[in-house]
Computed example of a mutant assay.
Amino acid sequence: MSWRYAMVGQPMPLYGSPFADADGNVWLPSYRLAYPQEGSPYTVISSDGEWLGQVEAPPRFRILDVTGGLVLGVLRDEMDVENVVVYGLVGGPSLVR
């Protein structure tokens, strides 16, 4: 759990740190207070500025790299043990393992 004191006049971020995949698309993770580097969902924008959609990532999943329709990342289990996993992107709104 985390605490956040709202300050009047202080904006809350909508996204965490963006990153680019091998195709030049920009991935914007939704901002999360507890683990800001583990954003879900991710908004994907092409290098031309076209909105490509959103990708729902599993909870506690941090993306490391995206290329060729595959997503490499780290998945933390309930004991906070990190496992390297690869998911495939499909046409739907979620990642498939």
Rank of each mutant, 00 (worst) to 15 (best):
S94M: 11
R97A: 13
D23Q: 14
A6I: 12
V44K: 11
G24S: 06
Q37L: 13
P93Q: 05
V84C: 03
M1T: 11
A22G: 00
D48H: 07
V71I: 12
P13T: 07
V86R: 07
I63E: 02
P29I: 05
E78V: 10
Q10S: 13
W3L: 15
A6E: 14
S47E: 10
V26W: 09
G39W: 08
V85N: 01
L95K: 04
G92P: 00
L28K: 03
S46H: 02
S17T: 15
L75M: 11
D65G: 01
R76Q: 06
R4C: 11
Y42C: 05
R76H: 12
A34V: 12
V44E: 04
I45W: 05
E50W: 05
V8P: 01
V74E: 14
G16A: 11
L72R: 10
V8L: 15
D48N: 13
S17A: 09
S47W: 03
M1N: 03
S30R: 11
V44I: 11
W27M: 03
P11K: 11
S94I: 07
V74H: 07
E78W: 10
M12R: 14
A34K: 06
G91H: 09
M7C: 07
D80Y: 07
R32S: 08
S2Y: 07
P11M: 04
G68A: 13
P29W: 03
S17Y: 08
P59M: 04
T67A: 15
A22K: 12
V85H: 10
V71S: 06
G68Q: 13
G69T: 07
V85E: 12
W3E: 13
L14K: 11
V8M: 12
Y87V: 01
L75N: 03
V85L: 13
G92R: 08
V96E: 14
Q37W: 05
M79N: 15
S40H: 05
L33C: 02
G68M: 03
V85G: 01
L70R: 15
T43V: 08
P11N: 03
F19Q: 04
V71N: 06
S2A: 14
P36D: 06
G91S: 11
R62I: 01
L52D: 14
A57H: 02
S47F: 06
A22V: 12
R62H: 04
G68W: 01
S46F: 05
E56D: 05
G68Y: 02
V96P: 00
E82N: 11
W51P: 02
D65K: 09
L14Y: 10
A34H: 01
V26I: 15
R62Y: 02
L33V: 11
R4G: 10
D21L: 08
P36K: 11
L89V: 12
F61Y: 14
E82S: 14
R60L: 05
L33N: 12
G88F: 04
P58A: 06
D77L: 00
P36G: 05
G24W: 04
P13D: 07
N25T: 00
